[in-house]
């Protein structure tokens, strides 16, 4: 308990563009219980970062776990992390193990 999943990686996405530029699917009570990246839009901050990939599952955003969050709540947490002016980046803990 409390240990990172073995294949997880911390990715810091600088807010280098006006949009984050990812599409996610999944959330608690769906077939995909944690949000998975399904699209990365060219020219968005995530694309510019170069380290996020389609198929990765997002475990945490700025240290906040997405486990047990329904889709809309997970999306809101990610959107607010990108919108806040407190940081010039968003930290994602991702895994390719689904």
């Amino acid at each position: 308990p409390g240990l990172l999943e073995p294949t997880s990686a911390l990715v810091r996405v600088a807010k280098s563009a006006t949009t984050l530029g990812i599409a996610i699917e999944g959330g608690a009570n769906t077939r995909q219980p944690l949000p998975r990246i399904v699209t990365i839009q060219r020219g968005g901050s995530a694309h510019n970062c170069g380290q996020l990939k389609v198929g990765q599952v997002i475990l945490e955003v700025n240290g906040v776990s997405l486990r047990g969050r329904e889709h809309r709540e997970a999306a809101r947490i990610i959107a607010e992390a990108f919108k806040t002016k407190e940081r010039d980046h968003v930290d994602f803990l991702v895994t390719e193990f689904n």
Binding site: I24, G26, T30, Q41
Partner: peptide
């Protein structure tokens, strides 16, 4: 397995 099959697909949100 049976439970997984009954779970609905998720919507997709662009962020």
């Amino acid at each position: 397995r049976e439970k997984r099959l009954t779970l609905p697909p998720s919507e997709i949100t662009l962020l």
